[in-house]
Design a protein around this nucleic acid. Structure first.
Lengths: 119, 119, 119, 119
DNA sequence: GTGGTCTAGACCACA
DNA sequence: GTGGTCTAGACCACG
């Protein structure tokens, strides 16, 4: 799994999603130490401020825990990450349906549309 | 069909979509005069500049034509509006799949997810 | 000579130019009565107000003379029309050189450019 | 090269031309960062919105690329700017010929006229 | 009253 | 500090 941010979208949420997914899939296990802000910034090719904010957001969601002078750690309960991921999926899907509705397709039509979707 | 803009998203594109859909569904026929910039601004509860911008975008796409001192008119070729609408749908769908992929679901998983979607 | 207004440009000045040219080339001779505002509006497919304004502009320039309840007449001195035409030519040409200068071409370059112009 | 907008014409297109020319002549090279919207607004003595609009137009033409929170950059392919400039020249020239035709001069006459032009 | 242009200034998320 | 979005309101030529 690699970090390929979509340049047209805000980086911070993308980074959040990426880390969250990494945790949910076990790349980082419960209690593991995440890369330091600077480290992550370098490997992700991103501004450290952005990483810092991403960590803060994840901490707010209870997915990670920051310990002063020690680093940022994955919460003991990795279930939260999984739920968070599922929430994001639901949100994006809901948004998608809303958008398609604005484009003149009701839920049924969208389902059919997706069914026949390719590429 | 009513105009209920999502407050969390840019109004201009939403307005574009709305007008485009109106044309595609025949609310405005080929050659019809659209409401004037100011008129539309009032009925949509939006700043005239925003409406003008939307009209400009639609004009660029060949969906409408603005004539100085006369008004803005639906293009003779209504097909363009329909195609434009379909393009938007495709784009949103593609984006959706990309997003879901970033959330750890491949195309197949997404299709199943959608199939079981409710609400 | 026929009246083919460029739809993308203001009609009034175009009409002025057209009438002025008609006088300069003898379509209307010195002292001749021009078509009435309404007449001209119909034949030119234009708003009567626009014709009226054009006549006013031409009168201001001394090219025609309006007589209350009688109509608009070509001035005795048609030379004025010819000079006016020449002024317009000069003005357009000067503007053209200015524009081309803004596009990075000096007078010499423009002259060469024109020399090789086709279509 | 200096920025002297013609007060009688829309500023935005003039600004576009100016920037385009700057790029075509190498003032800004491929990949270079253009002045920020606000910066350019100050140096050009123009409203930031107007600059933004110009940047948008240039972006649409593929001449520059705007990156959120980073700035606006000259496209890698500088050729586009040069072609765009040439297109503008062609367009202005074509318009000029059209105008002169409406003033009673055919292409040949115009060419002679230009040849003898001074000032 | 129409679209076209511009200014002024605000707020936003992001970096 | 960056671009992105929107509002408010002004003036213009044209019809």
């Amino acid at each position: 799994m690699s970090w390929k941010p979509d340049k047209d979208k805000p980086i911070c949420p993308q980074l959040c999603e990426y880390i969250c997914l990494s945790i949910a899939t076990g790349v980082y296990g419960a209690g593991d130490k995440l890369p330091s802000v600077r480290e992550m910034a370098v490997t992700a090719g991103v501004n450290p401020n952005t990483v810092k904010r991403a960590y803060e957001i994840l901490e707010f969601r209870g997915i990670v825990t920051s310990v002063r002078n020690q680093g940022t750690f994955v919460s003991e309960n990795t279930l939260i990450a999984k739920e968070s991921l599922e929430n994001m999926r639901r949100q994006k899907t809901a948004e998608y349906f809303t958008d398609m509705k604005a484009l003149g397709m009701d839920a049924e039509a969208v389902k059919k549309y997706i069914e026949e979707w390719n590429a």
